[in-house]
């Protein structure tokens, strides 16, 4: 067990280091398509997280019973079951939200983040660990979609979560709620996150050199 990372690490890695959008660049289709507003981003991320957590739990529980040859088919069946549940519940309880997310809820089935986590993590780890990992990835997805959705909503409609934040004379940039705006914003955010990571690494490296020199001097 000593070689395995701690549980908190398992959760945190999905938020930043291994963020599904900014680092793994998985599941970009729903990311780009639904983030016209912050609420859409949150709803999409929560739906995906629900599917991710429960699929990971089930896959991890039955991981030793499934023959390797049909594992992908089995994962897809399990994932599709949970996606259909989400779709039906949303249609029944939140018809407005379900309408604005349109076909992207059923399309969670083919979201690479989910199948990726089953194949890379849940099929090799204990159920508890898999759920923590799924929650971490889901939170990372939520973070990315919320930031993207908020930025697009602020610039594209002048509001955030439906509340007016821009002054009245502000003329919304329609491009931000069009597909082009999604690509531009995601690209700039990725650039920013890469810049931050390189910057952090550089500082860490310098610190190590400084420490080494200090030790050497004494």
């Amino acid at each position: 067990m000593s070689s395995k990372p701690s549980l908190s690490n398992e959760f945190v890695k999905g938020l930043w280091e291994n963020n599904p959008i900014f680092k793994q660049v998985l599941g970009t289709c729903p990311t780009l398509a639904v983030t016209v507003s912050a609420i859409n981003g949150i709803a999409m991320a929560l739906a995906t997280t629900f599917v991710l957590v429960f699929s990971s739990l089930i896959v991890s529980l039955v991981r030793k019973l499934i023959p390797t040859q049909v594992r992908i088919a089995s994962y897809i069946l399990i994932i599709a079951t949970f996606v259909t549940i989400v779709d039906l519940v949303m249609k029944a309880q939140f018809p407005e939200l379900s309408k604005s997310l349109g076909p992207y809820i059923p399309l969670i089935v083919v979201n690479c983040i989910i199948l990726g986590r089953q194949e890379a993590f849940a099929s090799k780890n204990s159920p508890f660990r898999s759920v923590i990992d799924a929650l971490g990835m889901g939170s990372g997805f939520l973070l990315a979609l919320f930031v993207l959705g908020s930025l697009r909503e602020i610039f594209g409609s002048g509001t955030i979560l439906g509340l007016q934040v821009m002054p009245n004379f502000y003329e919304p940039w329609l491009i931000m709620i069009l597909p082009a705006g999604a690509f531009l914003t995601l690209g700039l955010l990725m650039g920013l996150s890469n810049f931050y990571v390189t910057h952090k690494k550089k500082i860490e490296k310098e610190n190590i050199i400084q420490e080494y020199l200090k030790i050497k001097a004494t």
């Binding site: 003329e171 940039w173 329609l174 491009i175 931000m176 069009l178 082009a180 705006g181």
Partner: peptide, 10 residues
């Protein structure tokens, strides 16, 4: 192109 998509009416 950015302006065209951002402010199509003006």
């Amino acid at each position: 192109a950015f302006l065209q998509a951002a402010f199509p009416v003006p």
